[in-house]
Design a protein around this nucleic acid. Structure first.
Lengths: 214, 214
DNA sequence: GTCTATAATGAGATAGAC
DNA sequence: GTCTATCTCATTATAGAC
């Protein structure tokens, strides 16, 4: 056999992907601590003990899930920073929209799990670092919208990031709003939040078009 | 003895108040499910089983805690609605500031617990209803800032409320920011978020003064 | 890679003396 | 109103056969 797995992430029956999907649904619906490994296994169509063939423990499942949502967003954000878009706000809108859609659009609202106390553990170092990289990108996209001392930029960046991750809670509350609408609303709100002078609806419409064609 | 307790909520040694304070700290630090009744009791200076003399069960402790933060805020909000303040935004600023300070300023950041899956249970009906009343107040304070169809007003209200409750997560991240600063920043952000045209820093300064003297 | 079986632990809650 | 003692049950994780 080769020294590195060559085909691990294929969607197999009862495989890793099934377990992750099941865990995502249950973690977001019932909470992490309240979700038992039995419940995950049952939903994935395997026995509880078989989980430990795919993952080292329960934390490992959560960490995999979180890294899976934050890593693509950070990559997207870093690519975004290399593009030459002159109009301030367009890239921020695009990033928030991307971020919110990824968090909301999947099978489950993984964003709500970012705040979990368990995430302070060691197994989640990589996740936290990637999220820091993402936060830095947010700051770079806010900066041209509003000149701000570094400390205040930091705070504003965290508020915007908090708004995005908090949008999942909103989506839960408004049952008749679908994910795309909430993601768009979050992107609008983020741009408004970023700058002191806000952003009127007409200008926002232009921003959206530009952002969607990035 | 009288038919109703006449002096139950006094801060007694090992009493209800001690238990609540201990639970608040542990719930916010370690999470609800991960906090054991033993740990709460130990911190309150009593034995685990004695908890059940003060509360029916674990949920009962959490529900008491949550009702204790949302009820004063809803009362304040409803009083605010009866006052005659003409400048739009002043009352919204005041409410957000009050709300954020209460959530952040106590011993613990109870706002983070609002999103808990357990809160969907029956024991939390009263809490959820009070929070709905609070949300309605938020909408009434946003309305004069920005004319909006009812559905969009609803969404925007939820975003603002989410921002406030999410501010606790921000406060955790920025260790060098104290609660008052974050609360002020949240109030600023909320006013900016509420209206399409935002709110420049100078105008915000006037708003703050007016709000603080309400 | 999945299973059965079970170990090892710790949880919430109750009983009843003082 | 607090204690000691304990019940009952569910949990994570492991061992080892197939």
């Amino acid at each position: 056999m080769p020294s590195h797995d060559l085909s691990p992430p294929a969607v197999a029956r009862g495989g890793r992907a099934q377990v992750l999907a099941a865990a995502a649904e249950l973690f977001t619906r019932d909470g992490y601590a309240a979700t038992t490994t039995r419940a995950i296994a049952e939903r994935a169509g395997i026995r509880q003990s078989t989980l430990y063939h795919h993952f080292a423990n329960k934390d490992d499942i959560l960490a995999t899930l979180l890294e899976g949502t934050v890593a693509p967003t950070a990559s997207y954000a870093e690519r975004l920073l290399t593009t030459a878009e002159r109009v301030p706000g367009v890239r921020l809108w695009a990033l928030v929209r991307f971020n919110a859609e990824l968090l909301l659009g999947g099978l489950s609202n993984l964003g709500a799990l970012y705040q979990l106390p368990e995430v302070r553990g060691e197994r989640f170092t990589e996740f936290r670092q990637t999220r820091c990289r993402l936060a830095a990108c947010y700051r770079e996209l806010i900066r041209p919208l509003q000149p701000l001392p570094e400390a205040e930029l930091r705070l504003r960046g965290e508020l915007v990031l908090g708004l995005v991750e908090g949008a999942v809670a909103v989506a839960r509350g408004c049952s008749d709003q679908d994910a795309a609408q909430v993601a768009t609303a979050a992107a609008d709100a983020a741009v408004r939040l970023a700058s002191d002078h806000g952003c009127p609806t007409e200008q926002l419409a232009l921003l959206r078009v530009a952002a969607l064609s990035l």
